[in-house]
């Protein structure tokens, strides 16, 4: 149990770091990277529970792989949008990402 606890703590720390990055960074690239960090924290949780959880099973592994591939796709789409945006606005500053409001 203590081992699970330390995994979870590590994941929480990672999650908070990521969250901090997402909320505060101005550079969109960094925001995307921080987002990956948060996803990885979740992955860590899934792995930890699949090994040390109440009912250990492979489902956790499968889900992790799933998440990683989705995250990769998401990063690709995100970076693609960023590139298009950069071409149009010559900035990667998220403060200027307010198209929705206009």
């Amino acid at each position: 149990m203590t081992l699970l606890g330390s995994y979870l703590t590590l994941a929480a720390v990672l999650f908070c770091l990521g969250l901090y990055g997402v909320l505060t960074k101005r550079n969109a690239i960094v925001v995307l990277l921080s987002l990956e960090l948060m996803l990885n924290a979740v992955n860590l949780n899934l792995i930890a529970f699949s090994k040390y959880g109440m009912i250990p099973s492979l489902t956790g592994h499968v889900f992790t792989l799933f998440t990683i591939s989705v995250a990769a796709a998401e990063a690709a789409v995100g970076v693609a949008i960023l590139i298009v945006f950069y071409r149009r606005r010559v900035t990667v500053n998220v403060d200027e990402f307010d198209e929705l409001r206009r």
Binding site: V22, L23, T24, V94, D95, F97, D98, L100, R101
Partner: peptide, 10 residues
């Protein structure tokens, strides 16, 4: 509704 994604997230 400032349009700032980070604000919404916060």
């Amino acid at each position: 509704q400032s349009g700032q994604l980070q604000g919404y997230l916060l």
